[in-house]
Amino acid sequence: MTQNDATYPGPQNPADSTESAQMKPMPPLPPAPPAQSGSPAQSGTGPENPAAPPFGMTPYPAAVQLPPSRRNYVLFAGAGIVVGLGAGLLLAQIDMSGSPEPSTVLFDAVQSCGVHEQTGIELGDSGQSLTMDSEGTDYLEEGVDYADIECVLQALDIPDSVTSRMDNTRALDGRQSAEWGGFSASWSYHPDSGTNVVIESVEPGED
């Protein structure tokens, strides 16, 4: 055997050559991207910014904020609604406080004569009108004595001229009317049904 024969490895096994061909080395991983140079805020290593996410991960998006113009519009709209509601409540209170109190003069006159529970005396319109019916010759007609009607009229300070007209009213005269103070009165008379008097409170300046 020559020297060349001593160094010759000899024929290789075909199976060994096939196994070596199948086991190929893995390709190397791609290198990480180099860090960008700049301020600490840009590189993400400064104290104010959190650490940069690992390679291959996407950071969460920042919270969506309204632009300053839309925020101002929302604030102005809310303030306008509050101011409108406050003004409406204030006007409602002024209107309620400015309304006059209902008169109780008719109610007080009926109470003073003690006829508030008698048949033929009826208050209406929340105490702003009074209807009085006296007894007539017809037994089906019920009412109070004419003296009770006179008592209520005197409590309302009826003028003597109006009282005289009532006392002299006939059935043929139809319905009569008069006004004094803050009252408007109308009346009629018939022997069968008696005297009917209707009095209404009149506010100052009302026709």
Rank of each mutant, 00 (worst) to 15 (best):
P204W: 07
N4P: 03
E101C: 02
G98T: 13
G114K: 09
G174R: 01
G182V: 14
R170A: 12
E206W: 10
D167I: 00
R175G: 07
E48M: 06
T137E: 15
F107A: 14
G56K: 01
D138P: 00
L89T: 09
A171L: 09
S188R: 04
T104E: 11
S188C: 02
A6L: 13
E150I: 09
M96H: 13
Q154T: 10
E200L: 10
D148I: 06
D167R: 05
L91Q: 11
A185W: 01
Q176G: 06
Q36S: 12
T163D: 07
S177A: 12
V83G: 10
G174L: 06
T119E: 15
T2I: 00
E141L: 03
D192R: 04
G84S: 08
S164P: 06
L89V: 13
E150R: 03
T163C: 01
Q154E: 13
A21P: 00
A35Q: 08
L29P: 06
L91K: 05
Y189R: 05
S43P: 03
S193E: 09
I199K: 03
S43N: 04
G78H: 08
Q93M: 15
T104Q: 12
A155D: 14
S97Q: 14
N72M: 15
E19M: 12
I94L: 14
D95C: 10
S177R: 08
S43K: 05
P54A: 10
E141G: 03
E135T: 13
S112L: 14
S99N: 13
P204N: 06
L29T: 05
P31H: 06
P59C: 07
V105R: 10
Q36T: 15
P47N: 07
E203H: 06
V105D: 15
Y8M: 06
S129P: 01
D16K: 04
V110P: 05
S20W: 14
E101S: 02
F76A: 15
S20F: 15
Q42C: 05
A41F: 09
P31V: 01
S164D: 15
D157I: 04
G80H: 11
P61F: 04
V83H: 07
L85C: 10
Y146L: 11
E48K: 08
E200M: 07
H116G: 11
S69Q: 14
R165S: 12
G205H: 02
S37M: 13
L106R: 01
G124N: 10
A171E: 14
D133G: 09
P204K: 04
P11S: 11
S186E: 12
A171K: 02
A178L: 01
S39D: 11
S99C: 10
E117N: 12
I158D: 03
S177P: 02
P191G: 00
T104M: 12
E142R: 11
L153Y: 04
S97D: 14
N196C: 05
P31Q: 06
R71H: 11
G194K: 00
S99D: 13
P40D: 04
I199T: 01
S134W: 09
R175E: 15
T137P: 09
T45A: 07
A32K: 08
Y60Q: 12
S99W: 13
N4S: 08
A15G: 08
S126M: 10
E200A: 12
A109T: 01
P159W: 02
A15W: 07
V105T: 14
T18R: 08
G44N: 00
